[in-house]
């Protein structure tokens, strides 16, 4: 039997923003338990003023939609990230400086013609590349905190 289109699984990145005072809610727990989502936390920033989560989630389309509704009811902003990093191809000179710091291999050089290649699906949304780009051709692809993770 053909699976119905709506029950196809998909894997997307999402950006959740918790308003002040909501960071204590176990939202991630509910996303896993109630919506059967496979979650990989790419980035989490929690302070007195805000909470931000960047997640890689995999699940059935209707469960992801359900998760988005649930977040809305909880007062948590739920944004789909189409592109964790916005790549300005006109500005890019294909030098490769960003590939030096990319931990996921999402940014790489095609060694046939030495063009930069960006694979959005592999991106961890860590933002380390933003400041490694000397011509500032990379910018945050979503309205999160653009400050790069540091070690």
């Amino acid at each position: 039997m053909k699976p119905e289109l709506k029950s196809a699984t998909k894997r997307i990145k999402v950006f959740l923003r918790f308003p002040p005072g909501r960071a204590g809610r176990p939202v991630t727990y509910h996303l896993v338990k109630d919506f059967d989502l496979k979650i990989n936390i790419l980035r989490a920033e929690v302070s007195v003023n805000k909470g931000e989560l960047v997640l890689d989630i995999e699940g059935r389309s209707e469960d992801i939609e359900g998760a988005a509704r649930f977040c809305g009811e909880e007062g948590v902003e739920f944004h789909t990230i189409d592109n964790a990093v916005e790549w300005n191809r006109d500005r890019c000179v294909h030098c490769g400086a960003c590939t030096a710091v990319c931990p996921s291999g999402a940014l790489s050089l095609d060694r046939r013609d030495w063009s930069l290649v960006f694979s959005a699906a592999d991106c961890y949304a860590c933002n380390v590349c933003l400041k490694a780009c000397p011509v500032r051709a990379l910018s945050p692809g979503f309205d999160g905190d653009p400050i790069a993770a540091t070690d």
Partner: peptide, 13 residues
């Protein structure tokens, strides 16, 4: 150890 260039071979070509 991974390497990365800073000079663009694509534009040099």
């Amino acid at each position: 150890v991974p390497t990365a260039p800073l000079s663009s071979l694509r534009v040099a070509r």
